[in-house]
Simulated assay, not measured.
Amino acid sequence: MGDGSGAADGAEAIHALVAEGAEAEETRTGASLTAEGIRHTAFAMHKGGYSPDQVDAALERLEDAFAARERDQATRDGGERAWMVDAEGTAEVIVARLSRPPGYRFTRTSVLAVGYKRVDVDRLANKLVKYFQDGRELTVDEVRTAVFRPERGGYREAQVDLVLDSVVDVMLAVR
Rank of each mutant, 00 (worst) to 15 (best):
A7T: 07
A8W: 01
D9Y: 05
A11M: 06
A11L: 06
A11W: 09
E12H: 12
E12K: 12
L17N: 05
V18D: 08
E20S: 13
E20I: 00
E23M: 14
E23G: 14
E25I: 02
E26G: 11
T27Q: 06
T27M: 10
T29R: 15
G30C: 10
S32E: 12
L33A: 11
E36F: 09
E36S: 12
E36Y: 08
R39E: 13
H40T: 09
T41N: 07
A42F: 09
A44H: 08
M45A: 15
H46F: 11
K47A: 13
Y50K: 04
S51V: 08
P52G: 10
V55Q: 05
V55H: 03
A57K: 10
A58Q: 06
L59Q: 01
L59H: 05
L62N: 07
L62H: 03
E63G: 13
F66I: 14
A67N: 07
A67R: 07
A68C: 04
A74M: 02
R76C: 06
G79L: 02
E80I: 09
R81E: 15
R81V: 13
A82L: 03
W83C: 00
A87D: 01
A87Q: 10
G89H: 02
A91G: 03
E92P: 00
V93Q: 11
I94E: 04
V95H: 04
V95D: 05
A96C: 01
L98S: 04
S99R: 09
R100G: 14
R100K: 14
Y104E: 15
S110G: 14
S110L: 08
S110T: 15
L112N: 12
A113C: 07
A113E: 15
Y116A: 14
K117A: 15
R118C: 15
V119F: 13
D122I: 14
D122T: 12
L124Q: 08
K127F: 01
K127W: 06
V129R: 07
K130Q: 12
Q133H: 11
Q133S: 15
Q133W: 07
Q133I: 12
G135M: 12
R136I: 03
L138E: 08
T139N: 04
T139Y: 01
V140L: 01
D141N: 09
V143Y: 00
R144Q: 03
T145H: 12
F148Y: 13
P150N: 13
E151S: 13
Y155F: 09
Q159C: 00
Q159S: 05
V160M: 06
V163S: 01
V167Q: 02
V168S: 05
D169W: 06
L172Y: 10
A173R: 09
A173P: 05
V174R: 10
